[in-house]
Nucleic acid binder design. Sequence first.
DNA 1: TCCTCATCTGCGCGGATCTTCAGATAAGGT
DNA 2: ACCTTATCTGAAGATCCGCGCAGATGAGGA
Lengths: 125, 125
Amino acid sequence: MGRVLPLDGCVGGDPQSQRVALIRASVPDDAEAGALAELFRLLGDVRRTSILYALLEAGELCVCDISAAVQVPEASVSQTMRLLRASAVVDNRREGRRVYYRLADAHVRMLLDVCREHTGHEGSR
Amino acid sequence: MGRVLPLDGCVGGDPQSQRVALIRASVPDDAEAGALAELFRLLGDVRRTSILYALLEAGELCVCDISAAVQVPEASVSQTMRLLRASAVVDNRREGRRVYYRLADAHVRMLLDVCREHTGHEGSR
DNA sequence: TCCTCATCTGCGCGGATCTTCAGATAAGGT
DNA sequence: ACCTTATCTGAAGATCCGCGCAGATGAGGA
């Protein structure tokens, strides 16, 4: 991952280095950071984003509805949903030959909401 | 982007198709979806995620402190910060030869918090 | 003015990932 | 049983993106 000089940079021996040590302690370790990044990464794709917002609006949709809603081939939707389900971003339910997907939990809904607030400049307060 | 059959799939002529039309109307258009995905995409990288959580804890850090905190070469940190700044995820402030970075706004902090709640299983209730 | 330190930028390589096609599987209806 | 429909899977190609190096820029101090 490339060389990182011990601590001789701008913090060489000054009070800052203690602070850095404290921060290192409270920052997520590699494993947790990986998990956090993974969740964001899943949301960070136009296709997936569109699908998730469609689910946020609709509550529940089957693959072919999603396909129609976001104008993406059904096979592609299916693949996308597999990814999202593997990371517990969405849940699914089978009814006859249809499989209905929905957002997994309130956290996901909240992430989508907050992000839309941040991006759009509409009355977020 | 691949072919998408009109609306003849499983919703052919049944009430669902109206619903799909409604959903299409309220779902972010391509432009907005792109912006939303872009924000998530920026958060969806282990290195960036680590840096952002460091900033969440510390409030404000200069490049060399970040470098020490997340163990990444300063040049790489600098590049990363440029990306994050371009999309208004972080803000910066110059003091002498140091440049201090901080999270841009409450929305970003909220995203990080919510994500950590979802990932970690600690008392998020 | 010269030198040092902190930060920034341009470039190229390596690796991960999105996309789609074509075929497999599952569930119903006739 | 057979056929149709809805969804899933595997694989391959093209693309994108992160990564680090080496050098440039800007700001202070002597």
